[in-house]
Write a protein that binds this DNA or RNA. Structure first.
Length: 346
DNA sequence: TGGATTTGACCTAG
DNA sequence: CTAGGTCAAATCCA
């Protein structure tokens, strides 16, 4: 892989990564001191996460913008047949359909999230992202304790939106929901406040949604309205500024795949949509990772096998605490040093 | 009554 | 042939 970002972005990225490293070291030192208060540690963790978030957002930004200029098909990454034991087959190759609505599998961009919702928060099983989805199927998956639910965009017919998602509850940790998105929303319909406002201005009937969530709960796929807000908080932590990105930033490869293949691409790439709340142009960091217990991991599905194969390490750390998935894209050297991380991008 | 969910059947890829 | 993905009729519910 080639160099990733321009000098300015590179510098900022290095700064952020170094800060994160320093704070991690500080945290380590703090942990060695018995009398260190949990609050101090929490603050440090938040700072660390913030730094990594910023750094990754930079990479995300430049990659996304680069891919924006490419044909959609050039963005499609062949999914890996890798499927780890106990992964519920979540990452198994999902080829696509060519006949539109036919049962043939489509060639659609695909990306995945792992969402953990900690028990006690009332968000157990919460899987919502601000889009309105209609469940169209459910399947028992071989080797999985929980069925996989299939959703498509409510506006599939009215707007021809082909976005779909699959929600699979993790066997190993039922608090983890693995969500695979396929296709991008051609409809625009995400709110800033937790209610799902569709592009035509209608608000999703909350009672109905609550009912559906309740039903999902009965089958281990409970979804609650609160999660939307929670996820918005999560996404807000990824906020970055598009305006500062120059065209020569467009060499980062990995994150744009995620973005471009994601349902969120319009939101990420178009600050004019309401979804821009997730990736606002303010580049704000609010450290929500430190205050919520939801951990969201975005990855290409090709990497999800890795994530799933080690869900604990993925989930119990920061969203970027497990950077294994980066390796697939960036080909880091084992001796990766933050001093000049770009030297290791191949 | 209209929209969402459920669920068995069907289709396709591997 | 099997498993995963989708369809669509039946059903549910506000």
């Amino acid at each position: 892989m080639e160099k990733v970002v321009n000098p300015t972005e590179q510098k900022n990225l290095i700064i952020e990564l170094n800060e994160g490293r320093e704070m991690a070291n500080e945290l380590k030192n703090q942990l060695d001191v018995v009398k260190t208060s949990p609050e101090n540690c929490e603050v440090l963790v938040e700072k660390i996460l913030s730094s990594y978030d910023k750094a990754l957002a930079m990479l995300l930004t430049c990659r996304a913008l680069k891919e924006e200029t490419l044909p959609v098909h050039s963005l499609l990454v062949p999914t890996s047949p890798i499927i780890s034991e106990g992964s519920n087959g979540f990452s198994k190759d999902q080829h696509c359909h060519n006949k539109g609505e036919s049962k043939k599998r489509k060639i659609l961009p695909k990306w995945s999230e792992q969402i953990r919702v900690c028990s006690g928060t009332g968000l157990e099983g919460a899987v919502d992202d601000g889009h309105s989805w209609r469940k169209y199927g459910q399947k028992d998956i071989l080797g999985a304790n929980f069925p996989r639910a299939y959703y498509r965009c409510t506006h599939r017919h009215s707007r021809g939106c082909l976005a779909t998602k699959q929600v699979q509850r993790s066997d190993e940790d039922p608090s983890i929901f693995e969500v695979t998105y396929k296709g991008r929303h051609s409809c625009i319909q995400v709110t800033n406040s937790g209610s799902a406002i569709v592009s035509d201005g209608k608000e999703m009937p909350k009672a109905k949604k609550a009912r559906s969530l309740e039903k999902e709960d009965q089958q281990g796929l409970k979804v609650q309205n609160e999660v939307l807000q929670t996820k918005q908080e999560i996404f807000r932590s990824f906020s970055f500024n598009f305006t500062g990105v120059e065209s020569d930033n467009l060499d980062c490869q990995f994150f744009s795949d995620v973005m471009k293949e994601s349902d969120y691409s319009p939101a990420f790439l178009s600050p004019t949509t309401s979804e821009s709340n997730y990736f606002s142009s303010s580049c704000q960091m609010d450290n929500n990772f430190g205050t919520i217990d939801n951990i969201l991991q975005i990855s290409e599905s090709v990497d999800l096998a890795d994530m799933i194969s080690t869900p604990t390490s993925v989930i119990t750390n920061s969203p970027f605490g497990d950077l294994d998935f980066l390796n697939d894209h960036l080909d880091f050297e084992p001796s990766f040093q933050l001093d000049d991380p770009f030297a290791y991008f191949s």
